[in-house]
Each structure stands twice: as structure tokens, then as C-alpha cells.
Amino acid sequence: MSLPAAADPGVGAALEPPAATGRPRGYGRYALGKVAGSLASLGFVLVVNFFLFRVLPGDPARTLGRGRFTTDEQLDAFNETYGLDQPLPQQFLTFLGNTLTGDLGVSLRYRVPVSELIWDRLWPTLMLVGTATLFAALIGIWLGVHAAWRRGGPLDRISTSASLTVYSMPEWWLGLLLIAALSVGIGPLPGLFPTGGLRSVDADPSSLAGVLDTAWHLTLPVFTLTLAYLADYALVMRSSLLDEIGEDYLTTARAKGLRDKVVRNRHAVPNALLPTTTVVALNFGFVVAGAITVETVFSIPGLGLLATEALEVPDYWVLQGVFLVASAAVIVANLAANLLYGLLDPRVRT
């Protein structure tokens, strides 16, 4: 055609073939920045942790041991083991060293290392929250998309008010109601699900029957958490799709003669998914935090139940360990969300 290519200032550069090999440099820089930010957050969490458990209580051994030590020798031994008799900066270094080598102390109640305890209790929590997140994300996104696309329609009105209601509800109360209705049974109706726990006493966890038994035990808690998360995701997806609906590129897509459904799925949803993915990944970081009450209500031996049990004692080091893991989970999820966002959004990636 007529126009000399070089006339347009951008075109000359355009002649270079696009970077095709490896991940573009832009993403590497972006990712490095995010990793550095996460490390800084981790440092902050460690400081808070130290502050909460060793500075705030004044005399940690007395406050948090609460009547546990009958003799002064026991108290001294406790203090010495954890270096609580040293000056604060020294204590912080000891704390740092111990934490980074995975030494989180010994549980006062179970008398085993806290790190072992946490490792054991991690899996039920991951299973519970992972499954619930998966279901909630899939259903929530579906609901959000359809509600936003027909804004003000019946589905939108029902799902938005239902979401708001669930959002205003303590999820563990929902769990209590479900147990009352479906596990204990109402009137003549028998209970369909177990009232709690991860498996029946006589079940063999390695057999198929055992796996099904666990699934049966997890049904209600997963359902409870799914509902709780679902409300969140449906609202987020709805509002980010609504943000896209007025955009010009959707008019372009429509003008091209695409069906409404194709306009929605191929153009609007991928853009609206960007913020939603971030929220889902971020929320997954609150895995421990979110499981605390639901695990308590359904007596599932995960990290959450571990925390509430430790609360009764109070099991000083277990609480600290759970707090650390809970915060670290958020940071990791945060990082994952950012990295994912970068991968999904070409404006960041390239």
C-alpha cells in the first residue's frame, strides 16, 4: 500500500521480530520485585510475632504460662530454653535463628515439637479449604458472570441478596445450623451426615471405603465453607464484570457479529477474571484463618482446631506457630496471586 512504513515513528521498531524466546524480561523484573516485597512482608510478620509473644506480655513466661509453673526452677528452665532471660535484641536473634531453622518450640500440651504438630495438622486443613475454594471459585464465578451480564434480572437479584446475607453470617453459625438439620436430624428426619471428625473410628484411611468415609465426613464442612467463600467470589466476579460491560472493546466484539455468549465468554470474562483470580488466590492465603471456626464446629483435626485447642491451655508455642504459618500462608498466596496476575495480564507480562 501507499504509505511508507517508516513514516510512523512506531513502525520502525515494529519491524524487529517480537521477543519469542523464553519469558520476556519485563516479567522477570516484575516477579523479582514481587518476591522482594514478599520477603519484606515476611520480615515484618517475624517482627510482629516477636513483639506479640515476647514484648507485649511483659513477662511472657508468667502471662502465657499462667499457673503452669509451680516452682521457680521450672520457670527459669522455661525462660532459659527459650532465651527469655536474655536482653531483647539477643532474644530476637535467637528467635530468628530458631524460626528459620524450623524450631518453633515444643507444645506444652502434647510435648512434641510444634513444627511436627503443625505438619500433621496441615493436611486436613488444606483438604478442607482447598476443596471448598475450588467449588466456591467455580460456582461463584459462574454466578457472578451470569448475574452481571443480566444485571437486574431474576438471577442477579436472587444471587446478590443471597450473597449479601451469607456475607453477613458467621460461617460457623451456618455450620451449626447444618449440623442441627442434617447430622442430628429434625423431628422424624434422621441425620444424614456425621456430626464431626475426619473419619469413622473403624475406617481404614488407605482403602477406598476409607476415602469415601472421609469424603462423607467432609461434606458438610466443605459445603459450609463453600457457601461462605461463594458469596465473596460471586460478588467480586459480578462487580469486575460490570466494570467491563461498558467498555468499548465489547461494542467492537458485538459489531463484528459475534453472538452475545461469545462476546461474554471470549471478551468480557477473560478481562474480568483478572481481578477475580487475584481475590481467589489471596483468599486462599487465609486458609488457616478461615478454617479456625469451621474446624472447631465440625471437630476436624486441622490447624484451626489446633489453634482453638491451644487457646484453652493456653499452649504458648503452638499459638505462635499457628500464627506464623497463618501469616506466611497469606504472604505466599499474595505472591502467587501477583505472579499469576502477571502471567494472565499481557500488560504486565510483556
Partner: peptide
């Protein structure tokens, strides 16, 4: 914003 609310609240309530 990163510190999970419930664990922090539990710890604080225990300490305070």
C-alpha cells in the same frame, strides 16, 4: 493487611 485477622485477634486476646 497481610496479617490474618482471626489468628492475630486470638493471640492478642490471649495476651491482653
Amino acid at each position: 493487611l497481610v496479617i490474618p485477622f482471626l489468628p492475630l485477634a486470638i493471640v492478642l486476646a490471649t495476651v491482653l
